[in-house]
Design a protein around this nucleic acid. Structure first.
Length: 183
DNA sequence: TCCAGGATGTTCT
DNA sequence: GAACATCCTGGAC
């Protein structure tokens, strides 16, 4: 199996954000920085729905919603509280769904990645990645897990740090992982 | 009680 | 439409 085979393709993202959020857990996020590859494992995600989600800024920001309605696999970088947050567009076009990456586990380097703002700093992800494609990207992409490294338990809960939340559990994380921002 | 981080809200271009 | 500053919440000491 080549590295290309393990890359997550567009059909992975073209499903409901809630499903994609759960299946992204344990996947490998690779960031090519300078001359090395920084590998991280996704340990915490949240699903967002731009249209009816009171927590989503895409609700009032027309530009963000436009991106969320774009095709699945698009990277959405969003500035908040002087930090950058990274999302992946999911669902069918025009659906305005996205998955927020909240926490990562660094595999071959050390960094503080227990939070959406911290992980973007650790990987040098900024506004330059906005509206790029995760599927065909030279600097940032996702890979499926190589072997049976998928032995973990997924926990669902309500989202964190949000003023107005939906009455749904849209936050997912790997149980007992030390890099999750909150238990 | 203090420090750090975070899908908020406002302002500038 | 995009950038920034402030406020609020959660975790650490």
């Amino acid at each position: 199996m080549t590295s290309q085979d393990r890359k997550l393709q567009r059909n992975f993202f073209s499903r409901n954000a809630k499903i994609v959020a759960q299946e992204l857990l344990g996947k490998i996020l690779v960031r090519r920085l300078n001359n090395r590859k920084l590998k991280t494992k996704i340990v915490e995600t949240e699903a967002y729905f731009g249209e009816k989600d009171p927590a989503s800024r895409a609700r009032q920001n027309g530009n963000l919603r436009k991106v969320m309605e774009d095709e699945p696999g698009i990277i959405l970088v969003y500035g908040v509280h002087n930090n950058w947050l990274i999302n992946f567009i999911t669902g069918k076009e025009g659906k305005a769904e996205a998955v927020l990456i909240r926490a990562l586990e660094p595999l071959n380097f050390k960094a503080k990645t227990c939070g959406p703002g911290l992980l973007t700093k650790a990987l040098s992800i900024d506004k330059g990645f906005h509206h790029n494609n995760i599927i065909n990207n030279k600097k940032l992409w996702l890979e499926d897990t190589i072997n049976s490294d998928n032995e973990f338990e997924i926990v669902d809960s309500f989202r964190v740090g949000i003023k107005k939340d939906l009455p749904e559990k849209l936050r997912f994380y790997i149980k007992d992982n030390p890099h999750v921002s909150k238990k």
